[in-house]
Nucleic acid binder design. Structure first.
Lengths: 192, 192
DNA sequence: TCTTAAAAATGACCGCGGTCAATATAAAAT
DNA sequence: ATTTTATATTGACCGCGGTCATTTTTAAGA
């Protein structure tokens, strides 16, 4: 028969999460070790994997939380009316995503859901992000020839490209903001 | 003082590469194990890492070779004159890149060079790809308002997005080709 | 209160990528 | 030929993510 979730379970999971985010705050995501997390949380290694399928599942939760916090702020902001404002709004989200190269790679890898029934927390943030900015393009004179969702997909594609080039020594002489300006003008203001 | 490369060295490297590509041909990239490669090549494990910085360096070479083969065919093809032809031309390259999800993720991770002096073989293929298609946009009536290289960057950004969605259960009801058509029309034929 | 079964926690163990001091081999110097 | 030095190879070893049979804890049923 089915049983309710024990209080102990929630406590253990909370201990693991706080231990992990403390360690991340200290040394970043890349160098996080499962053994350090369980040591700090005061549980056995096996317990970790009873709560998370793998290490990345934990990282996904922590990173998704950061992205969602940035999206929360986006949601209450005024709609942008021009390319400059748009880029300024997107900037904090892009900052989070590119805080570490390791983080950016992990985000990309989890940005699309593999299984219909198992949409991960990062894939969720991407869904939320694109719906949010699609809303912006429903009003105003942004690409009136296109479906707002398609406009949003384009913005996302270019943003990802700009972030990737941010890590590229060949291109990072140009600041990400400038590159985004070029992209957004070309995508959102064709022929102008 | 500097010495010439020994014949033995080249032989060993060749043995490792053929062993690896044989194994990949049999079971794909994801399940390739360094220990199996050295076993098949008849060398010790340490030898592997004397020839490649890490496992991914080997995979990079094998995958870059596949991409370059596809680009070789692109190079001798006729320039596309419309969106449909363009997509047909890009298709083989996209097929290679999405042959395995593991491969696609690895490609993305190596698509931009981290160190100026250490541009990897996959980053090279991306450089080659974008110069190649930028050439296409120098003639014809593709976005005359934009620099051809910028047009090419847009195509690349959308192509990557389309490939990523290919692995996404939420979107893969729509074939990649159809998604690319939507993207390319919006990017290359705005307002039409 | 005692029994019992479901759920949670444990830690020894494994797989596999990667390291490095020791050894072997090639070619230059004598 | 013999010594010397640069280069290539070796395999025992390590780090770390992840597994699983066993033990411990919880709470329902008697």
């Amino acid at each position: 028969m089915k049983r309710a979730v024990q209080k102990r379970t929630l406590e253990t999971r909370a201990k693991l999460l706080t231990a992990a985010s403390d360690l991340v705050a200290g040394g970043g995501y890349q160098s996080l070790r499962v053994e350090e997390v369980v040591l700090r949380a005061g549980v056995a290694k096996g317990t970790f994997f009873a709560h998370f399928n793998d290490k990345e599942a934990l990282l996904e939760q922590l990173i998704a939380a950061e992205i969602n916090a940035a999206l929360d702020r986006l949601e209450v902001a005024d709609k942008p009316t021009n390319v400059n404002d748009l880029i300024k709004l997107l900037d904090p989200v892009m900052q989070v995503m590119t805080s570490e190269r390791y983080v950016f790679d992990l985000i990309l890898r989890h940005s699309s859901a593999t299984l219909l029934d198992k949409v991960g927390p990062i894939a969720d943030t991407f869904g939320r992000f694109i719906l949010l900015i699609a809303e912006w393009f429903k009003t105003g004179r942004w690409r009136p020839d296109l479906d707002p969702y398609l406009v949003a997909e384009g913005v996302q594609s270019f943003a990802i490209n700009a972030m990737a080039l941010n890590f590229c020594a060949l291109h990072c002489g140009v600041p990400t903001e400038d590159r985004m300006t070029t992209y957004m003008r070309a995508w959102l203001e064709p022929g102008q």
